[in-house]
Write a protein that binds this DNA or RNA. Structure first.
Length: 429
DNA sequence: TGGAATGATTTGAC
DNA sequence: GTCAAATCATTCCA
């Protein structure tokens, strides 16, 4: 009876209603933030009510499993707990989950910035909430003190009232944490969705990747260094909007997809393979010519001594004049080329590869291009039975089981114009 | 608009 | 950890 009267008085004085009202106010900020992800600026317009508090209740109440789950989640997401660079841990986790893109892309920093905002809102509201709870408890205690003048109030009664307040504020706290978790989840899903959103690579990027793939057809497994190099090369040419770069994992994805799809449908990729093989072969010819010129210039008696073949060292002008034999074999740049005498062609490449330059780096450097040319030759000459075991003329380096020969010991040549002479060790395997 | 192409993800083996 | 394979999800294009 007395209790009912007291509660009624509390309601009349707006005490209990205020608690429910606070539940709305305190959690609104977080919700508003979530919706403001779409329309930033709305947060600033929201009024903020002065606070409450309930620290005592948190210490006294038995741990709520749901609350514990929320706490753990907020900690894991980097919202609760000590600040570590504005939730960078969560951002890194999200980046890792999205394919290991450890780059500081715009999207990444955007995610971090928004997570920091959520964290700030959460802590501000939590602080206000604790303060408000303390004030509110004090207010109720004063009310009880007033009541004690007219009637005796037992400690049990006081305890019960405080308990009611604490439970109310606990539920508010739960709502705040829930809202924050939802905000983080929404942000995260949008962030990940945005990354999942597929964009085709630029033509140049695809060309670079294809060039590498077809020039290493016998073993299309680029090393980490090669992947990095390719990613770097591709990023230069990619223009897909702000923050669009090709990462190492994207390069890995690309090669993974390419290997599978090539193997599944060799016929379909034939033309493409020929095109790139021809392209690479011309490059190889140019490189070989440059090597010849270089070696002659450097040391007439000891050819090729100390020669290092690299893209930037190509001497295309002289290559043009010294390799008309090979260059003339390819007509146009569309990939359609004629091989009137594939045997001769192969012989000339053999001599390039082994005979004339045996033991020299030049020979090693053009090895992959020779492989590519062999592929062209074999295709043109009708060596289509790739899986039949003719490894000499295997157009794609696939073994009889359908796997690439020596797939676990990849060649790691950075540039299609480089050869096995500059093989990098593939630490990933 | 439907199918092809393609980048990303998942799963399981190693 | 990487890989192949299957699959999903999106983009491209006739």
């Amino acid at each position: 009876m007395l209790h009912n009267k007291l509660e009624q008085k509390a309601v009349e004085s707006g005490v209990v209603c205020a608690v429910d009202w606070w539940a709305v106010i305190l959690t609104r900020s977080v919700f508003v933030f979530v919706y403001s992800l779409e329309s930033p600026g709305a947060v600033a317009a929201m009024p903020v009510h002065p606070g409450l508090s309930i620290r005592g209740a948190q210490e006294e109440d038995p741990p709520d499993p749901q609350l514990m789950r929320l706490d753990n989640m907020l900690l894991a997401e980097g919202v609760a707990g000590p600040e570590k660079g504005g939730g960078s841990a969560a951002a890194a986790a999200a980046a890792a989950a999205s394919g290991g893109a450890a780059d500081n892309s715009i999207e990444h920093s955007d995610y971090r910035a928004k997570l920091t905002q959520i964290r700030q809102i959460y802590h501000t509201e939590l602080e206000k909430y604790e303060q408000a709870c303390n004030e509110f408890t004090t207010h109720v205690m004063n009310l009880l003190r007033e009541q004690s003048r007219t009637r005796p109030i037992s400690p049990k009664e006081i305890e019960r009232m405080v308990g009611i307040i604490h439970r109310k504020f606990s539920s508010i706290q739960m709502q705040l944490k829930q809202s924050t978790c939802e905000a983080v989840m929404i942000l995260r899903s949008r962030f990940l969705d945005a990354r999942r959103k597929r964009r085709n690579f630029s033509k140049q990027a695809t060309e670079i990747l294809n060039e590498y793939f077809y020039s290493h057809l016998s073993n299309p497994y680029p090393s980490e260094e090669a992947k990095e190099e390719l990613a770097k090369k591709c990023s230069i040419t990619v223009s897909q909007g702000v923050g669009s770069t090709i990462t190492v994992s994207q390069v890995s994805n690309w090669f993974g997809n390419k290997r599978i799809r090539y193997k599944k449908n060799i016929g379909k990729f034939q033309e493409e393979a020929n095109l790139y093989a021809a392209k690479t072969a011309v490059n190889a010819a140019h490189a070989a010519a440059a090597a010849v010129q270089n070696s002659q210039a450097n040391s007439p008696t000891t050819p090729n001594s100390g020669f290092q073949m690299k893209d930037e060292e190509f001497q295309l002008d002289s290559a043009e004049s010294k390799n008309t034999l090979l260059s003339n074999m390819f007509t146009g740049s569309s990939g359609s080329f004629s091989l009137p005498n594939t045997g001769d062609m192969f012989l000339s490449m053999q001599s390039l590869n082994g005979d004339s330059y045996q033991g020299a780096q030049v020979g090693a450097n053009v090895q992959s291009q020779v492989d590519t040319l062999r592929h062209v030759i074999s295709q043109t000459a009708g060596y289509n039975d790739a899986l039949a075991g003719n490894t000499m003329y295997s157009p794609h380096g696939l073994n009889a089981n359908g796997g690439w020969q020596d797939a676990r010991t990849p060649s790691s040549v950075i540039s299609p114009t480089e050869g096995p002479g500059s093989v990098h060790s593939d630490t990933s395997n």
